[in-house]
Amino acid sequence: MGTQRHFRIWRGDDETGDLVDFDVEVNEGEVVLDIVHRVQATQAPDLAVRWNCKAGKCGSCSAEINGMPKLMCMTRMSTFGRDETVTVTPLRTFPVIRDLVTDVSFNYRKAREMPAFAPPEGVAPGEYRMQQVDVERSQEFRKCIECFLCQNTCHVVRDHEENKQAFSGPRLFIRAAELDMHPLDAKDDRKEVAQAEQGLGYCNITKCCTEVCPEGIHITDNAIIPMKERVVDRRYDPIFWLGRKIFRRPGMPEKPADGRRG
């Protein structure tokens, strides 16, 4: 029924590791995750891999497949040549825990620093009124399944561990944009916070994040660029400038971050 295919899967932990070869059966219609599971069931029962829904909805099974950041559950075997070796490695930007599982706590830490939705004062539950056209912009960003492929791909942090401190990454930029465009969010300094505390300025718009997003979210065009543009607008608005000087948020630097790093 199936054909035999060649796989190379990275195995190891935070100290050492290597690619390990597996010859494994592949059947019609299967995805990479199916094959990883078959390896697990028949050859390497302790092969560590995260997964959950197997339908592209939970964003757990992120990995690099032949060097491309992808969801294993949505990568069909039919996209490879018959004799092509399929190499599966863990996300490079995050520390390995074991095999294909990485420590993605960076993303949760950054999420925790992101100011939460601020409900509008005086609007009772059940009284929220918003137009579909107005919620759609934010809804695009709320499609995010937190697979962190964008975070993994972004070269601001992919090759620069030192930037992780100051840079939150595309996942959090779309969160900032989502709240900024939320028709009823009561906070009005989302862009400034993104610039000053999340390192929006580090992004130099190479669009790598957008390319790998399995949800097809237009991260760069619809979130990052508008956020940057409006930050620029406001920075030269003298009234805003004044206000910003006087009511400076703690921890907000005097000078915006350099936009050309990374």
Binding site: A116, F117, P119, P125, Y128, M130, Q131, Q132, V135, S138, Q139, R142, L179, H182, D185
Partner: peptide, 11 residues
């Protein structure tokens, strides 16, 4: 209540 937490349902 979810709307007060920031949920955005279709309208």
């Amino acid at each position: 209540e979810l709307e007060t937490y920031g949920a955005l349902f279709d309208r």
